[in-house]
Design a protein around this nucleic acid. Structure first.
Length: 309
RNA sequence: GCCCAGAUAGCUCAGUAGGUAGAGCAGGGGACUGAAAAUCCCCGUGUCCUUGGUUCAAUUCCGAGUCUGGGCA
């Protein structure tokens, strides 16, 4: 059986979805979402989800999977993604994983083991309370006492990660370094990342934020709040949502909220690029000014089949 | 036209009792095994507006000029 799996990634707003759609048409492929926010229902505009029309062109999977208050994890994503990939391959089609959530991509590309039992949120709350009362240094010292090796890899200020490490230690094995993972050899990956000149990318980001606002982002957030979701809801901590909530709560004006979305999106794109630089098996595609998504898809198609008969 | 206050990093500003300067933001780089659109770390040379003067030494003090605010006419 053919085991080819395409992965199309890159920073937010670079144009992944469009290219993937074109590529899917050429390959008789099906698109699998690899974006942590697009997994959620009702978060359509702010997450820049493909439109209903686009989803009709080729099959789209793992969009609108869970309610906004669902506690999504990489482990859950990994399970969903493997099931989806296998199903597509069994039907003789080509899976195309599309998205910018680096850790999620990693969970498919590499053998990440999530077999250990998940921690409980009660314990997490306890640890968070402990961190608040005793401070970051104490938490790091505590982790050092129980799992020195792991503690040495986490910055003392990164309380969130320290708490996770304590949870993981208590659940069994503790957390292992990412770079220990072996490539997942169940599939033949064609791994591509789109990128472009930083200035253009940032201009594109700013532009897209404006478009999202015009498309009704504020109303989307309002309706989510009307449904009973709050700023504590995990999905609503995503970029574009948290800033609009601040505005709706009167903490900022709309203009500031929009500028904050732009800024946070730029920061995010930068972090995505940093993450992706870790992969030496990644094919970077530097998009040139004026290049169309068709051309890029064509390039990926040609590049990926060359050397094969 | 007159009076007052500014002019220092991409932006907003601090500072130097005269010995060529530093914060926040923006920007750049990095880390990452169950929240990842999360969380965390590191990175600051710039005609200190121009030009005279005083001085061993001026971004700093004094004078003049230019520009920008505010006030008075």
């Amino acid at each position: 059986m053919n085991k080819t799996v395409y992965i199309i990634t890159g920073p937010t707003a670079v144009g992944k979805s469009e290219v993937a759609l074109k590529l899917a048409s050429k390959l008789d492929g099906e698109i699998i979402n690899c974006d942590s926010i697009q997994l959620y229902k009702y978060l359509d505009i702010g997450s820049a989800k493909p439109s209903e029309e686009e989803m009709k062109i080729v099959p789209h999977h793992l969009f609108d999977m869970v309610d906004p208050d669902f506690n999504m994890t990489v482990a859950t994503y990994q399970k969903l993604a493997f099931a989806c990939i296998n199903n597509i391959l069994e039907r003789g089609k080509t899976p195309i994983l599309v998205g910018g959530t680096g850790l999620y991509i990693n969970s498919v590309l590499y053998n990440m083991d999530f077999a250990a039992k998940p921690d409980t949120y009660e314990r997490r709350e306890e640890l968070e309370k402990m961190a608040e009362e005793r401070g970051a240094e104490y938490m790091h010292a505590y982790l050092t006492a129980i799992d020195e090796d792991c503690a040495s890899r986490i910055h003392p200020n990164n309380t969130r990660k320290i708490i996770r490490a304590i949870e993981a230690f208590e659940a069994g094995e503790g957390i292992k370094p990412l770079d220990n993972c072996e490539l997942n050899e169940n599939y033949d990956f064609k791994f591509y990342a789109l990128t472009m000149d930083r200035e253009w990318l940032y201009a594109k980001i700013n532009n897209r934020v404006l478009k999202l606002v015009k498309a009704g982002l504020v109303d989307e957030v309002k309706s989510l709040l009307d449904m009973g979701y709050t700023s504590d809801t995990q999905a609503l901590k995503g970029i574009g949502y948290k800033e609009i909530i601040e505005y709706l709560e009167g903490k900022t004006d709309q203009k500031t909220a929009v500028l904050n979305i732009m800024k946070n999106t730029r920061h995010f794109a930068k972090r995505q690029l940093t993450w992706l630089r870790r992969y030496d098996n990644l094919n970077w595609i530097e998009i040139q000014n004026g290049q169309t998504s068709d051309e890029i898809a064509e390039y990926i198609y040609e590049d990926s089949i060359k050397g094969e008969n």
